[in-house]
Simulated scan of single mutants.
Amino acid sequence: MKILKYFIALLTILPLAAQDLQSEKKKTLWNDFTYDVGNIFGGVGYSYSRPFHWKGNDWANFGYLAGGTLLLFTVDEEVNHWKNGFQEDIPDFVIDYGHEYGSPENNYMLTGGVYLAGLFTKNEKLRRTGVLLIASATAGGFLQQVSKRIIGRARPKSGAGSATFDPFHLDRVYDYDSFPSGHAMLAFSNAYAIAKQFKSPWVKAGLYTVGSIPGLVRVVDDFHWVSDVVFSTVLSIFIVESIDRYLDSKYNEKYNDQSKNISWNLSFGPSTMGVSLQF
């Protein structure tokens, strides 16, 4: 009887040991890479599908965003004239940073570098951050490229007014591709996603400030109206948050601020408009 008990116990233990070995075998760079690529595309698809699942508060925030953008639209030209008064006082390195950092090629160099660092060091938290960065940039980048062609808003440097449009072009029409701002969207997506790594509100605020520079520089250099940049910045927050929520179900590692009650809210009224961050 003892021999029979030992035999049954052995039959029970061996499959479990085999499963552990098989699970360990599956943890390779290639399998991690293919898993992450799947999550990048899954995150992009998830962010695009969110409007079909919005409820009251979600639609309210979208309404605030649309209303705030329209309000800024009415003062775009006044802001554009106002910034001409200090345009020459901005240091060249700030201007250069603003134009270069938000460009797609430099953006993917940064996001790809973060991801590869996490992949090769087997750091799941860093891998997840890289996936979040790449997925957010891809979702926002594709959306703004399509929107530019559909909307066809004149850039300030074209010499046309802020209410001038040449819409519905399959090919990009330069000087009529102002809305939304790709530089603002990519730069702030990166800043917002990276800020999720830190608990300190001061570090977060610093990253948000740095991430806002490309959008502001594009306004100063007549590439965008202020409403283009504000809309793109807020939209990038929505995209990052939706993809990050999707990644919660795909990775065990969570960010430092997951244990905190942090939420973004839009406010809009006769004399107030803005985005509030509650810690």
Rank of each mutant, 00 (worst) to 15 (best):
residue 186 L to P: 00
residue 96 D to C: 02
residue 263 S to K: 12
residue 215 G to K: 03
residue 265 N to V: 11
residue 90 I to S: 03
residue 11 L to C: 12
residue 274 G to V: 04
residue 28 T to Q: 09
residue 210 V to K: 01
residue 50 R to C: 07
residue 193 A to S: 10
residue 138 T to R: 03
residue 233 T to R: 06
residue 242 S to D: 12
residue 279 F to Y: 15
residue 107 N to I: 03
residue 157 K to S: 09
residue 51 P to V: 08
residue 86 F to V: 14
residue 137 A to K: 01
residue 186 L to Y: 04
residue 44 V to E: 00
residue 230 V to P: 01
residue 199 K to D: 14
residue 15 P to L: 06
residue 216 L to I: 15
residue 68 G to P: 03
residue 224 H to D: 06
residue 226 V to W: 09
residue 2 K to E: 13
residue 112 G to R: 10
residue 27 K to T: 10
residue 94 V to Y: 05
residue 53 H to M: 10
residue 273 M to Y: 02
residue 30 W to A: 11
residue 268 F to P: 05
residue 102 G to C: 02
residue 191 A to R: 07
residue 126 L to R: 00
residue 9 A to S: 11
residue 217 V to H: 06
residue 22 Q to R: 14
residue 132 L to P: 01
residue 81 H to N: 12
residue 51 P to M: 06
residue 275 V to R: 01
residue 96 D to I: 08
residue 256 N to R: 13
residue 264 W to L: 10
residue 170 L to V: 15
residue 266 L to R: 08
residue 135 A to H: 00
residue 158 S to C: 01
residue 175 D to L: 08
residue 128 R to T: 05
residue 76 D to T: 08
residue 182 G to C: 04
residue 125 K to M: 00
residue 174 Y to M: 08
residue 162 S to I: 03
residue 78 E to H: 11
residue 30 W to T: 11
residue 175 D to Y: 06
residue 275 V to Y: 00
residue 114 V to L: 04
residue 5 K to I: 13
residue 217 V to I: 15
residue 144 Q to R: 07
residue 197 Q to K: 13
residue 49 S to H: 09
residue 1 M to F: 10
residue 135 A to F: 00
residue 55 K to D: 15
residue 47 S to H: 00
residue 8 I to M: 12
residue 168 F to L: 13
residue 179 F to K: 04
residue 107 N to C: 08
residue 261 N to Y: 09
residue 222 D to L: 11
residue 209 T to H: 06
residue 227 S to W: 01
residue 73 F to H: 05
residue 136 S to H: 02
residue 256 N to W: 06
residue 18 A to D: 07
residue 238 F to T: 01
residue 26 K to T: 09
residue 18 A to E: 09
residue 104 P to E: 09
residue 29 L to P: 01
residue 61 N to S: 14
residue 110 L to M: 13
residue 226 V to R: 10
residue 243 I to V: 08
residue 120 F to V: 04
residue 200 S to E: 08
residue 142 F to V: 15
residue 70 L to I: 10
residue 12 T to C: 11
residue 243 I to T: 04
residue 52 F to I: 09
residue 203 V to R: 12
residue 56 G to N: 15
residue 109 M to W: 11
residue 96 D to M: 04
residue 29 L to Y: 08
residue 233 T to Q: 08
